[in-house]
Amino acid sequence: MTRYRHIDGWRYPDGVRLAVNFTLDFDAQLFRRVLGEPALELAQGEFGGRTGIWRLLELFHRHRIGLTIFTPGRIAELYPASLREAARCGFEIANHMWEHRVPPEPDLEWDHLRKTTTALEAISGRPPVGTRSHHRRSSLVRDGYVYTSSGAADEIPYYVTDGDATVLNLPFHYALDDAMYFHFGWVASENAGQRLEDCDAVHDVFLAHFEGLYADGKYMNICVHDFVSGRGMRVRMLDRLITEMKQRPGVWFPTCETVARYCLEQFPPGPGR
């Protein structure tokens, strides 16, 4: 049974009011391939690997803010140059499965996890410590991972325990995921369910959540995709959003790992209960 431990007495380092983690799920065409989507859907994913990723790296580098790239291990074989550039910029490279699926077979699941850890370490020079995936928590702990980022059982980081494996979770909410607004047919959804949004509408949603989380000193994790937010008009929207966020005092833009290390040090999970 999965158990949750919420953090009591949540506070940031002096001078910080809100941590904003920008997270980039860089999976290009891999998820489309796993879903068996047609050629021109894969090509829309390929846009992210050829074009979108470079624009996003440039955007976050120019703003001198932290970025965590959750990426499947196989991206290291498909688009190694962009991952090397991300590492050179000082961005965090974290686990997003091997080929954007977690096999149900325990041996194969472990094999995929090890392959991904090895592939990403070969790019960045250090093993990843975070993941956005549904790998078993016992496997994650065994392979040295300390945090996940999926699901939102709180508005601030919290601990999740399965058996004797505990990891920190940095809450990820679908309301802050670009694909929910901009991707036609997300995860093979029905044609009649599509309502494609424009940048201004989504900017306003993101900014309203920022205002709410900032007012209460919570935590914000914005998820963007290379093939979604790497489109020119959306890069410009993010540029505007980041600029507006930076104008508020006490907004901290670290990587996910930095937030995770802070939590583990200041609010350790303690003994299980």
């Binding site: 624009r55 494609l196 949004e197 424009d198 940048c199 201004d200 509408a201 489109r231 020119g232 008009m233 890069v235 410009r236 929207m237």
Partner: peptide, 16 residues
């Protein structure tokens, strides 16, 4: 949203 996408991407096409 159609208008915003066309105009927004035109601006972006000029930028990039």
């Amino acid at each position: 949203p159609l208008r915003a996408n066309w105009i927004g991407e035109l601006d972006a096409a000029r930028t990039f």
